[in-house]
């Protein structure tokens, strides 16, 4: 180790790996992963979310899974809880859609209305 910058760089990289264990605020994305969700293809959605969050270096986003959300026919479903905002539910997701949700909703703060359960029900 020859400089403080070097240490700071390692720290920054490493922090992302342990960040999950800290008390945190921020956005929570929940993927429905009961039998229905998994068979409808929730796992590629989850992997896509993880990859996208990692690629964009988003540190305050937590991705977790849950059981059956209830509307099995609309699976894969993901729910986004952004601090201070109402919950947004996206339905019939796939990997491509998941990436768009990260880009538009999580990063830019614009809900992707066409994927939401509200749009589907209309």
């Amino acid at each position: 180790m020859k400089s403080l910058e070097e240490l700071a760089k390692i720290r920054e990289e490493a922090l992302k790996k342990v960040d999950l264990r800290k008390e945190r605020k921020g956005t929570r994305i929940v993927v429905g992963m009961a039998t229905c969700g998994i068979s409808a293809g929730a796992r590629p959605v989850l992997t896509a979310l993880l990859e996208e969050v990692q690629k964009r270096n988003l540190s305050d986003v937590e991705i977790t899974q849950t059981g059956c959300i209830g509307v099995c026919r609309l699976e894969p479903i993901i729910e986004v809880y952004k601090e201070g905002d109402d919950k947004v539910t996206y339905v019939e997701m796939n990997a491509e859609k998941a990436k768009r949700v990260i880009a538009e909703h999580i990063v830019n703060g614009r809900v992707v209305s066409e994927y939401t359960i509200g749009a589907y029900e209309k």
């Binding site: 403080l4 390692i10 720290r11 264990r21």
Partner: peptide, 25 residues
């Protein structure tokens, strides 16, 4: 109980060796 003690990166992530850096510089 928070970090993996066999991984120096995790210690550095928790502000490890920053104190040494501060002291020396």
């Amino acid at each position: 109980g928070v970090i993996n003690p066999e991984n120096i990166d995790e210690y550095i992530a928790m502000d490890g060796y920053r104190a040494l850096g501060k002291v020396l510089t």
